[in-house]
C-alpha cells in the first residue's frame, strides 16, 4: 500500500498541530508529503519482526538529580517576555474547552 496524504488528512493533522493552513498550503502539502511518504514507505515494507526499537542512541539508566531547591527565574524577567501578562500571570484569550 502506498501512503497518500489526502487534503482531508492534511486538515486533520493541521488541526492537531495547531496550524491555520491556507487552502493553497493544504493542497501543496498534500502533494509534497505524499511524495516524501512515498520515499519513506520503503521501510514499511521491511520485515523487522523481532528487532527492538531504538529511542535513544545510548541506553543510559537512572540519571537523577538530588531533591534540592535551586533558585528560579525572576518573575518580572519572565513576564517581560510574555506577549500579554496581567496581575503576575500570563494572559491568554478565552479557553473554550476544559483540559482533557
Amino acid at each position: 500500500m502506498t501512503a497518500e496524504f489526502t487534503p482531508e488528512e492534511v486538515r486533520y493533522v493541521a488541526a492537531l498541530a495547531r496550524l491555520a493552513l491556507t487552502e493553497e498550503e493544504v493542497a501543496s502539502y498534500a502533494t509534497q508529503l505524499t511524495s516524501v511518504l512515498g520515499h519513506i514507505d520503503t521501510i514499511r515494507a521491511l520485515d523487522l519482526e523481532g528487532v527492538a526499537p531504538t529511542s535513544h542512541a545510548f541506553a543510559l539508566e537512572n540519571v537523577f538529580r538530588e531533591d534540592e531547591v535551586i533558585e528560579g527565574l525572576d518573575r518580572d524577567e519572565v513576564l517581560a517576555q510574555a506577549p500579554a501578562a496581567e496581575d503576575g500571570r500570563f494572559r491568554v484569550p478565552s479557553i473554550l474547552g476544559e483540559a482533557p
Binding site: 531533591d67 535551586i70 503576575g88 500571570r89
Partner: peptide, 26 residues
C-alpha cells in the same frame, strides 16, 4: 518532594504566582 519533578524549583502550595519557575518548568 522539596522540588519539582524535573527541575530544582520549590514544590510549594499557595505561593505568589509565577515565582517558583525556571527555564525547565516554563
Amino acid at each position: 518532594s522539596a522540588t519539582k519533578l524535573f527541575c530544582g524549583c520549590a514544590n510549594a502550595f499557595g505561593q505568589t504566582p509565577n515565582t517558583n519557575v525556571c527555564p525547565v518548568c516554563l
